[in-house]
């Protein structure tokens, strides 16, 4: 009961915060006009642009929805491949010492290369289509997933492992029934961080080479001096990112039981 009360209080504070930000934004842009020639359009203008962009193909040749679908396709493709390969890599590296010794030196070296630095070679190897862009996302996601899963598994409480050993569990069973469940919160943190990294990758990739996508839309809008459309692109990315994170948190609630 008490929790619910303070919960509502926090929701209230969050709501007031958003109202304040939008008000200040409105005052700066429309009332005081601190930036000249519409370089900071007000929230009302952004909303108008957003609505009109749902139907309008100018100046970049696609409606907003097409851009969103285009970017999402790439992000989700690269993200899923990155997670599907990254999860077992991190798990087995953390749990089986030979694999750790075999893989970690290479991995530690590769992970020091920023994901974005891969863009030039990937475009050379794979071109600029979905495949190439998904590969850029993959690099970002893979590294983040492995690092978090690895440290999550490594932090398994020794005494909890003992408990399972006393009951006669094998090394693999301990991984399955003790290490993995106890690492689950870390794994989900990794998945969420990687999601942010995925968006980072897609925008960078589309700024370089694309015919559609939110990053591409922002780039074109910038060339046309359309600050309003740039901001619409930024906000759309933010909203989708927040929504995907929200979905992941829902999934986390289903899987992570009995913890704060």
């Amino acid at each position: 009961m008490k929790n619910r009360l303070s919960d509502n209080k926090y929701k209230m504070i969050a709501f007031i915060n958003i109202v304040v930000v939008i008000t200040v934004w409105y005052l700066l842009s429309e009332v005081f006009q601190v930036f000249r020639n519409g370089m900071l359009p007000g929230p009302n203008v952004i909303l108008e642009t957003f609505i009109s962009k749902l139907n309008s193909k100018s100046p970049d040749g696609n409606t907003l929805l097409v851009h969103i679908v285009s970017s999402l396709t790439v992000v989700i493709t690269g993200y899923i491949i990155g997670v599907v390969i990254g999860l077992p890599t991190g798990i087995f590296m953390a749990w089986y010492r030979p694999i750790d010794y075999l893989v970690r030196p290479v991995f530690d070296f590769l992970r020091c290369i920023p994901g974005l630095a891969w863009i030039p070679v990937i475009t050379v190897w794979l071109g600029i289509d979905l495949k190439a862009k998904a590969a850029i996302i993959f690099v970002n996601v893979f590294v983040g997933t492995v690092v978090n899963v690895y440290s999550g598994i490594k932090q398994t409480d020794q005494v909890k492992i003992w408990v399972a050993q006393i009951f006669g569990a094998s090394h693999f069973e301990i991984l399955k029934r003790v290490a993995l469940p106890s690492a689950l919160p870390y794994i989900f943190t990794g998945l969420k961080v990687s999601l942010g990294m995925a968006w980072l990758g897609i925008i960078a990739a589309e700024l370089l080479a694309a015919q559609s996508g939110l990053g591409y839309m922002i780039q074109v809008a910038r060339n046309f001096g359309r600050a309003d459309l740039v901001i619409v692109g930024m906000l759309t990315i933010g909203l989708i990112g927040a929504f995907l994170t929200y979905l992941l948190e829902k999934v986390e609630h289903i899987f992570v039981k009995g913890r704060n």
Partner: peptide
């Protein structure tokens, strides 16, 4: 020679698995 269910331990800080009922 190694741990086994014939010698069950109740640990000082219990060590239940928090993800299980």
């Amino acid at each position: 020679e190694k741990a086994g269910p014939d010698r069950a331990v109740v640990f000082q800080n219990i060590q239940l698995f928090p993800w299980l009922t």
